[in-house]
Write a protein that binds this DNA or RNA. Structure first.
Length: 202
DNA sequence: ATCCAGTCGG
DNA sequence: CCGACAGGAT
């Protein structure tokens, strides 16, 4: 077996055994739920997002529910997640989804990128995790893994270069299903040890 | 490069 | 007081 394929299998096995079961990873979670989680997770740790995400989806189960509210309600519901501008953008995204996509979260990278508050990371993450697409997902956790594997440094460089994106694309498994789990697995690996869950990763 | 209606633990 | 935190927009 080629070395890269062996790495894919090994990390997939590790992820299957140790992944946290987060609500937005449940098979029944809607694309809207995934989008909300990704916006909330921009610069905010998982543990702080969890309770707010639960309340948010209970109150606004679809983009149309949120779009019907005043934007100020979104900021209030945002609580203490930080950078409340994201709440306004999420509300604006809900409005755009209703107006331009008939109320359904779009499934392609390019369409997602058009939404307010959705950049290259979030567009790729939603396309992959909510729609099962093969996307090159690169966030700060994944960049930590790149740094350790290919630069020999603990922390990633300040800016994300085209070369690093190319590297991430080359590492991505060809199989679609595996590529989706790979993105989640590398992300989880890059964050491992930051959650105080012990040192099961060596 | 810098700011974002930022927040939290060290 | 400092920096990390599933970034994005200017």
């Amino acid at each position: 077996m080629p070395p890269l394929a062996a790495l894919h299998e090994a990390l997939d096995a590790w992820f299957g055994a140790t992944a946290r079961d987060l609500p937005w990873r449940e098979p029944g979670c809607s694309p809207w739920g995934v989008l909300v989680s990704e916006i909330m997770l921009q610069q905010t740790p998982v543990v702080r997002v969890l309770p707010v995400w639960e309340d948010w989806l209970r109150r606004w189960p679809s983009p149309a529910h949120l779009a019907a509210e005043a934007s100020g309600e979104a900021v209030r519901q945002w609580g203490r997640l930080g950078y409340p501008r994201r709440a306004l953008r999420l509300h604006a995204a809900a409005v755009a989804i209703v107006e331009k996509h008939d109320g359904g979260v779009p499934g392609t990278y390019d369409e997602l990128l058009e939404l307010p508050g959705v950049g290259s990371y979030t567009a790729a993450a939603v396309a992959a995790f909510a729609f099962g697409r093969r996307e090159t997902v690169v966030d700060t956790n994944i960049r930590r893994v790149h740094a350790r594997l290919f630069s020999g440094t603990a922390l990633p460089s300040q800016s994300l270069t085209a070369a690093e994106m190319r590297l991430a694309a080359e590492l991505l498994p060809a199989d679609v299903g595996l590529s989706v789990r790979w993105n989640a697995a590398v992300m989880e690996l890059g964050g491992a040890g930051l959650h105080g869950e012990g040192a099961e990763v060596r």
